[in-house]
Amino acid sequence: MNEQLMQVNNISVNFGGLWAVKSIEMDVKKNEILGVMGPNGAGKSTFLNVLSGLQQPSEGYLIIGTQKISQSKPWNMAKLGLSRSFQTVRLLRELNVLDNILIGGHMDAQKQAWDILFRTKRYRQKEKELVSRADNLIETLELSEKKYEKISRLSTEERRRVEIARSLMTQPNILLLDEPCAGLSPQETEEISKLILRIKEQGVTVILVEHNVKMIMSLSDRIVVLDHGQKIAEGTPDEIAKHEDVIKAYLGGSVNA
């Protein structure tokens, strides 16, 4: 339960003199939901971009397993077992649900020219395996009826599910969810919350960035709070709820003031 998956060491990101993220340190443990919260502009998304390789840190490094990573391309981060969803859903609108999810299986696909041109047995087996993996995800995420629908015909919540399914298709150790409930109704938020718990049950660690305080408090095992790019608190949801600095960051002062 407490096995460490990733260590974040002194990560900082500087945009032309402005520190969007400053000296963040934390550990990510196996099979936990780690909530990352903070007011607007706290640096949550930038931090997530660093973890997924979309943003190179100005300082600091990550340790994933035994590897020390300071500057890494995003596709390498995916290979290291980090996958992510986006605040604004990023799906391929010209493709249907199944094909979108299959994109996530790219790293495991058979890509040798010989196999592709002659459709060898191992190629066909691999493709079959990927399609069946995608089918399982479609079933788990309750998208069976929409399997062949184009993305443009799906609701926001269904799109979020497809994006999560595509991330899970990469078989990540750590799933980064950037505001998975943005723009959803309370019922849909409830559904996504249940889904996140199911993902955790399957042994995937989740780093959840969310504005919905109620949701993040109820789902997370641990929470890290950022403000102005810096970590101001870390602890269990109960500890965070009572933390002076967190209350100050959110309400602009002490609750007793």
Binding site: G53, P74, S83, F86, L95, D99, H106, A109, I116
Partner: peptide, 26 residues
């Protein structure tokens, strides 16, 4: 054969959204 293979899927992905291609390990 190429476009109906993982190579074609990768091309299609980077045509429509490079960021998605990045995070799916392409």
């Amino acid at each position: 054969l190429l476009i109906k293979s993982p190579v074609g899927r990768a091309w299609s992905c980077l045509k429509q959204d490079e960021i998605t291609a990045y995070v799916t390990g392409i």
